[in-house]
């Protein structure tokens, strides 16, 4: 190992390739912890649905399907756009990467905007689970409240992940504009891409749990 290391390479690594692989491995491990984090949430969904099936189903019927579905389409698109940017930087097309990042972050902002609108609608309809006058009544009130606890915790946690993702993607765009990345080195682009796709995938799992399963039963 030589003492004069490549730019961006920390001294404990043999070369840039060694460091890039390690960074990507680190992100994958972090995503593994995220899987367990959301896994716990999905476990509560299973438990609550088992104990209060009617109320839980009734609660799910109150969700705003069109916003959830639009958001699903938006997120899938955003991951595709980001992947285009990643493909571009591998052949050194920096401008393309900047545009893709900007578009991805923009879609992310629209997602959050729609999410805020959705929460607004929910609150207007008295679907806040701690509300004194909760929309669902009778035998379905208890299970309905459980569903809406799950709904708000899940969507809020996902939105926090989205917000972090938007900041990260914007940061990639700024760095790309500054000319930090090229065909030979773009590890942060790959790492943030992994994170963004994961947040996207969480929504792919949450979407049926929130909007679909309840409507099918």
């Amino acid at each position: 190992m030589s003492e004069d290391v490549a730019p961006h390479t920390h001294f404990q690594y043999a070369d840039a390739r060694h460091q890039a692989d390690s960074a990507i491995a680190g992100m994958w491990l972090f995503l593994a912890t995220e899987v367990l984090f959301f896994g716990g949430l999905i476990l509560t969904w299973i438990f609550c649905r088992h104990w209060q099936p009617e109320g839980f189903t009734a609660g799910a019927h109150e969700t705003v399907l069109w916003i959830g579905t639009t958001n699903l389409a938006l997120l899938l698109t955003s991951s595709f756009v980001y992947a285009l940017g990643q493909a571009a930087i591998e052949v050194g097309r920096v401008r393309m990467l900047v545009w893709c990042c900007a578009l991805t972050a923009g879609i992310g902002v629209v997602f959050i905007g729609l999410k805020l609108l959705e929460w607004h609608i929910d609150l207007d309809e008295h679907l806040w689970p701690a509300a004194a006058r909760f929309k669902l009544e009778g035998g379905e009130a208890a299970g309905g409240r459980l569903f809406w606890v799950f709904y708000f915790v899940a969507t809020a946690l996902h939105a926090v992940h989205m917000a972090i993702g938007i900041v990260a993607v914007a940061w990639i765009a700024l760095r790309a504009r500054r000319g930090d990345f090229g065909a030979h080195w773009h590890t942060p682009v790959t790492v943030v891409g992994l994170y963004w796709s994961f947040v996207d995938m969480v929504w792919v799992v949450l979407y049926p749990l929130i909007y679909v399963v309840g409507r099918l039963t």
Binding site: Q52, P53, E54, G138, G139, A142
Partner: peptide
């Protein structure tokens, strides 16, 4: 307390919850 969870066969689930 949760009459709709286990409804007796042949009856309608009409009993209200007393929870």
């Amino acid at each position: 307390l949760q009459p709709k969870r286990q409804v007796v066969a042949g009856f309608d689930p009409v009993m209200p919850s007393f929870a």
